[in-house]
Simulated scan of single mutants.
Amino acid sequence: MSDARFEDGDEQPLRLIAQDGEGLAVIATLLQDAVFPITEMSLVRQKRRFALMLNRFRWEYREAAEKTGRQFERVQSLLVFEDVLAVRSQHIDRTATDTILSLLDISFLPGEDGTGLVTLVLAGGGAIGLQVEALDVTLRDVTRPYLAPSGKVPEHGA
Rank of each mutant, 00 (worst) to 15 (best):
Q12P: 00
E73H: 12
P154L: 08
G21F: 06
T138K: 10
E82V: 00
L122K: 04
T68P: 02
T138F: 10
R144Y: 14
V87C: 04
L130D: 09
T39C: 06
G111K: 03
Q32M: 05
R48L: 13
T39F: 04
L30F: 06
S89L: 09
S102R: 13
R48S: 15
L54W: 10
F57D: 01
T115V: 03
Y146T: 15
L52C: 13
Y146E: 14
T99D: 09
S77F: 07
A65D: 09
T99A: 08
D93K: 03
E82A: 10
E73R: 13
V132Q: 09
D83T: 03
L79M: 09
P149C: 06
P149D: 08
L101T: 02
F72V: 01
V137S: 04
A86C: 01
D3S: 05
Q90M: 05
V75R: 06
D105N: 12
R70H: 08
H156K: 15
P145W: 13
I92K: 01
Q32L: 00
F72Q: 07
M1F: 06
L122V: 11
L79F: 09
P13E: 02
V75G: 04
R15W: 11
F6E: 04
Q131N: 10
F36W: 07
L109K: 13
D93S: 06
T29N: 14
E73N: 10
V121G: 06
A4G: 00
R70E: 12
A28N: 07
A64E: 12
G114M: 02
R88T: 11
L78M: 13
L135A: 09
A4Q: 03
E66L: 12
M1V: 04
Y146L: 08
G21W: 00
V118L: 04
L147K: 11
P149A: 09
Q32H: 07
A127D: 11
T95R: 14
G125L: 09
F36E: 09
E11D: 14
S42K: 10
L122W: 15
E133R: 14
H91C: 04
V153Q: 08
F50S: 01
R58H: 05
R45A: 15
E112A: 11
G129F: 15
L135V: 01
P37D: 14
L135K: 07
D8A: 04
P13N: 02
D8L: 01
S2I: 00
P13S: 05
V35K: 06
L103K: 00
E11F: 11
R5T: 03
F81T: 00
D8G: 04
Q12A: 11
M41A: 10
A86W: 07
T99H: 06
D20P: 05
D33P: 02
T29F: 11
G125A: 08
L147V: 15
E7M: 07
N55A: 13
G116W: 08
E73T: 14
R144E: 15
E82M: 08
